[in-house]
Simulated assay, not measured.
Amino acid sequence: MTLAWGNRHLAAGERITGTEALRGGITAEMRRLTVRAPNGDTRHLVLRTVVDADDADDWLHREAGALTLLAGTDVPAPALVAVDPTAAHCEFPSLLMTRLPGRTVLDDAGVAARVPLLARQLVAIHAVRPAQRPREYRALTTADTVVVPPGGDAAAWTAAIDLIREPAPAYEGRFLHRDFQPGNVLFDVPPAGSPSAARITGVVDWATPSWGPADFDVAHCATNLAVLHGPEWGFRFADAYEEAGGVLAASERERRYWRVRDALALSEEVSLVSGPWREAGRTELTPGAVAERLDAYVTAVMNAEV
């Protein structure tokens, strides 16, 4: 059913001739589709299928809207081909989009060159001014659902949890990706080139575009970088964002609030996020190792000037 639906949205004479599962998806199954034209030329599309989620139609509606909004902007997002958010034509709710070149890069090697690129890309995303604002951001983590890692710094975690019990700071709204992190950014890295030759070729996974504080997107990427590469990289990303022209909250308390709110959210998903990282080659990032790195980052944020 899904392939028949996809074929109806291709150019005249084109047909889907192959599928390949893609790794890394958490909320959906991802597949690369090979499309063949009558003259033998081939191209690829990406199919996102949401198999088991009550709000699949909402996710896909929002992603379709974001991809439509970003067409023609400086943000390298996929182009929307078709969407079936309620599974009216497919076996499951599905979205079909163009495939962007490049690959995710999660290795420690070259991170110093990639961080400024990530920062500049996020500044460009926050510069998008939609005619209709997306949904206000949602912070699902609460002080009562945080999972303190075994052996974590009790004083730092207690202070962080107390901080997010306070009302969220006022902010100037921006267009947010809401899951901007290295796993959703594609890079072109020349095989024989130096890390400085890397460039961003795409930003993917636009299922939760939101309106909210730039600090929240920055905090999310910072948390991921801190766990992937070490706590200092979370701080270096925030610095790089400002160096690229991004504007963060003015006060230290506000900045700390957003950074720990995102980091504490990861405490509830350690096993969920560490799996795709190990599949991508970071086999040392077991749930225990991720929890230890998260503890080190939360402690550093609570003890440092941010």
Rank of each mutant, 00 (worst) to 15 (best):
M1D: 14
T2G: 04
N7Y: 00
A11M: 08
A11S: 13
T17R: 10
T17D: 09
A21W: 08
R23Y: 11
T27V: 13
T27W: 04
M30I: 14
R32P: 10
D41P: 01
L45R: 14
V46M: 11
V50P: 01
D52T: 13
D52I: 09
D52A: 15
A53H: 15
D54W: 09
E63A: 03
E63T: 09
E63K: 06
L67Q: 04
T68A: 12
T73A: 06
D74A: 15
V75I: 14
A77R: 09
P78S: 09
V81D: 06
P93Y: 01
S94P: 00
T98K: 10
P101K: 13
V105G: 04
D108W: 06
L122H: 03
V123S: 04
A124W: 01
I125E: 04
H126T: 03
A127V: 04
R129I: 06
R133L: 12
T141D: 05
D144S: 14
D144Y: 11
T145P: 05
D153L: 06
T158Y: 08
I161E: 12
D162P: 12
L163T: 14
P169C: 12
Y171W: 07
Y171I: 02
E172P: 00
L176P: 06
H177D: 01
V185I: 15
L186V: 11
F187L: 12
P190Y: 13
P195T: 09
A198Y: 12
A207T: 15
P213Q: 01
C221L: 07
C221P: 03
T223E: 02
A226N: 00
A226I: 01
G230K: 00
E232P: 00
R236V: 00
Y241S: 07
Y241M: 05
A250E: 15
S251L: 10
E254F: 07
E254W: 06
R259M: 14
R261C: 13
D262Q: 15
S267L: 06
S267E: 09
S267M: 07
E268F: 06
E269F: 15
P276K: 10
G281M: 13
G281H: 12
R282E: 09
L285K: 00
L294W: 03
L294H: 00
D295A: 07
A300N: 00
A304T: 08
